[in-house]
Design a protein around this nucleic acid. Structure first.
Lengths: 249, 249
DNA sequence: GCAGGTTGTTTGTGATCACATGCAAAACGT
DNA sequence: ACGTTTTGCATGTGATCACAAACAACCTGC
């Protein structure tokens, strides 16, 4: 009942966490907890949360303009998928990944996303290649104007378009879970890409180009190899970021 | 306000779904939705639900002697992990797997559990081999007395002990999700094993023996191959079960 | 000064209720 | 009789509230 002005000690976010809260009204046939899930998942995958950041039901409910019940269910679901982790305190936070965990995650991703790329190479059609090419052009433009955030977003779209083409729902759902588990790193990667323009970006472009060529020639093995290389680049980036972290201490 | 006696039209379950509802009282530091999750997961993995069976919050809450709130959260979590699926009606049911889905699941399981076996072969200690040997002896006894249910349970314990030894939490969590997604088949497999004694059991034993020998000689490749064979046997069983299904029409 | 207890606040949890939706059986009109 | 409408029930959803656990700040007593 005392201090009222000093209570607003919210951390300054890297970016508006929920862009427009698109079309604030609930469309028919939609449920609030489903909306909360989508919005939170989007925010997590975009790296809008910092590793170790704890979220509370009441604050999220207030920010999303719903009661805490839908938030509770969305958070439970995202925790099951690895986007958050349950603390012994019973609250939820963004996981702080260890070096070992990141290595295990990337190793699995190489294996599974490589296979998805191989499957996609067998199924892909010309219009789908065109679509991927358009996304890749968008990524190049992001590099030109140093838009690390959109770059990351389009890169994700590029990858998931491939997994959609692979047409293996089981495989895709596992891959999606691995992306959610890696999400705590996204924010740092975006910052790194923004601060070191051109260092890592060209190699990522190169791997996507190799993948597109493999798709055009329906070469499953080459597509798999290109995907492996692309994720190896991610491994290098996270390794470099870790050395930055160490240097910062 | 009318019929009271005729309301109890509950289906006769294959077996008591929640064994003893072990120690009905809640231990300190435990939460109700966590307990509901564990109990439901156990029941699903044991095959106590039929494919396509829909569950309602109120009935589950009544059976578990809690309010529907913890059940809601447990169900949301299990749905995220693939043990249940969300219907457009917004209710939850046990998934009805298609042939294609089963093939994709088993293919992934071969890949991932094979890798887990290879990892375990590098880490395993003598006492852990002894532990696996004890589980295997238990499985043999189950075959002698035609106890298909315990056999299935011990088989799961055997496999998950290997994944624990592999010491790769990320890999293990993905594998656990795949087991949950395959759970709808477990009931049918148990019935099949019980009705056809000795047909498939010996081959499963054989693969476990091969795996144990590979562990003793720390042969990662051999362990991986044995795991592949073991899951290939599962593939054959489900294929045989499907032909039974078709014949029954 | 400092260990240990106390109090107040924050936050997750579980129960209950009002409401909307979906579904199915009954009622109705043709 | 048959297709359509209505009614009633079953069920998921979301909001609100009381409570307990966890945490932090404060206070007390040595």
């Amino acid at each position: 009942m005392k201090m009222e002005a000093a209570k607003k000690s919210r951390k300054p976010l890297l970016a508006p966490r929920w862009p427009i809260l698109a079309s604030n009204r609930r469309r028919p046939g939609e449920v609030a907890h489903g909306r909360a899930y989508e919005i939170l998942k989007e925010a997590v995958l975009a790296g809008h949360f910092r590793p170790g950041e704890v979220v509370t039901l009441r604050s999220l409910a207030k920010e999303l303009s719903v009661s805490e019940m839908p938030v509770r269910e969305a958070l439970r679901r995202l925790t099951a998928e690895g986007a958050f982790e349950a603390l012994p305190n019973r609250s939820a936070r963004i996981p702080i990944l260890t070096r070992l965990q990141v290595e295990q995650l990337l190793s699995l991703r190489q294996q599974l996303e490589g296979q998805a790329a191989a499957l996609a190479a067998r199924n892909i059609t010309l219009v789908q290649i065109e679509h991927l090419r358009a996304l890749q052009n968008g990524i190049e433009q992001c590099i030109s104007r140093s838009d690390a955030r959109t770059h990351t977003s389009l890169n994700m779209a590029f990858h998931f378009e491939i997994y959609r083409i692979a047409d293996n729902p089981v495989l895709t759902s596992v891959i999606q879970m691995l992306w959610l588990k890696m999400a705590p790193l996204v924010g740092s990667i975006v910052e790194l890409l923004a601060s070191k323009p051109g260092t890592f970006k060209r190699v990522a472009l190169e791997h996507h180009e190799r993948m597109l060529r493999a798709f055009q020639s329906r070469d499953a093995a080459a597509a798999e190899a290109a995907m492996h290389e692309d994720l190896l680049a991610t491994t290098k980036i996270t390794g470099y970021w870790e050395s930055l972290q160490l240097r910062a201490r």
